[in-house]
Design a protein around this nucleic acid. Structure first.
Lengths: 224, 224
DNA sequence: ACCTGAACACCGTTCAAGT
DNA sequence: ACCTGAACACCGTTCAAGT
């Protein structure tokens, strides 16, 4: 067939950095960072492994780009919303984004080459607090405790991998199985009498701590 | 020479699970989890890679064992110390342990097979709060917000890798260099007018947030 | 009981070509 | 300009031996 038949021969679209980064995020969302290999991303895009290196310097550069996409998904505290409500909305948005992209939790704040969405996000959060009257020292306090809590909650609570009460129950059995009964009475009581109870929900735990911190920050702010 | 000369021939001591785990922790402390390979640990112990598998099921089992050693290094809240001081001491101890073993931060609360030191630690913390009069719901609130904050601070603040003010300065230059000047005015002001100032110290930020949370928990506890 | 060596199916990345 | 294929120096882990 003639090589000019450009439409019927399905000439694949050029790769492009965006398509590479999106495919990588998709893979990491499903399988985690460990299973994200250059070769698998290339396979998803039906391309030779080395084709990726035209659009990405190396694996670390790819991860930098992925993280900036994640930052771009966090709702910015813009508009005239009061600082406390704005920080609350931003915290819930960040919590949701980290739940979608669990592989990103440990990488968001340790990149040596932050992207534009990263810097823009921090600029907006700091700007909102400054506009509300926080001095730079109080901004540091507030940002440190809020982000510490949000990322830490994402890390410690959301990483527990079960959805149903039955799963959590089975897992608890497995955990205590190798040890003598009543070796850990307080932990056992806590798990059986509270965590395993049908009404218990992690999501509410996040908002309890978040509001505890926001209220305490408000008090500290007004005390100045 | 006769094979009975057992002392002069330096017959290496048997490997043993403890020696393997300790060597692995030592390597991870220095180079992180990424560079921790079975082959390198074997090399440190001057042994063939496959020798490790007599004492450890696989790489994941090795990491489980490493994490439990880390848990064993956290000071337990024992004795008759009041709950607030005990939680404060425990938080500072956990912060220090995580600073020594940064590779462990993301793994401490997501192990499918927690070891005895892990369970014993949680049992002691829960026991201290229960003994102080916290009901199980309040224990969940307190533990969730405290550990969230401690792990998150370790993740977000301690992962920034600089020691001296000069280093942080150079890094800030690098970060903003690819972008137009004054693109991020609030962030720039915050970094130059506060973070880069000689008196600023991360360590104090940790204790500010910790005391904010502990005081808020105390209020919530007494309000019940 | 404890350790070894070869082998297998993977990695990221460099280099030299291909179109 | 964009993609490929072979090659190199690595991985974790299985298997069959060695002492």
């Amino acid at each position: 067939m003639p090589s000019e038949a450009s439409e019927t021969e399905e000439p694949r679209p050029p790769l492009g950095r965006q398509r590479v980064v999106r495919a990588a995020i998709c893979h990491a969302d499903a399988g985690g960072l460990e299973s994200l290999t250059m070769r698998k991303v290339a396979g998803m895009l039906e391309v030779a492994p080395m084709a990726l290196y035209r659009h990405v310097q190396n694996r670390d550069d790819l991860i930098d780009a992925m993280i900036d996409v994640v930052f771009s998904e966090i709702a910015l505290p813009l508009g005239s919303t009061p600082w406390k409500a704005a920080m609350r909305d931003r915290a819930l948005s960040l919590r949701d984004v980290l739940a979608r992209h669990r592989w990103a939790i440990g990488l968001m704040e340790s990149r040596r080459h932050p992207g534009p969405a990263n810097l823009r996000h921090h600029d907006a959060v700091i700007g909102k607090l400054r506009a509300a009257g926080f001095d730079v020292a109080m901004v540091a306090h507030a940002y440190s405790v809020l982000d510490g809590y949000i990322y830490g909650f994402a890390l410690t609570r959301m990483s527990v991998p079960f959805d149903t009460s039955a799963e959590i129950d089975a897992m608890a059995q497995d955990m205590f199985e190798p040890f003598p009964a009543n070796e850990y009475p307080n932990l056992t009581e806590f798990v059986t009498d509270h965590v395993l109870k049908p009404g218990y929900d992690y999501a509410e735990e996040f908002e309890y701590g978040l509001d505890l911190i926001l209220n305490a920050l408000e008090e500290a702010f007004h005390a100045v």
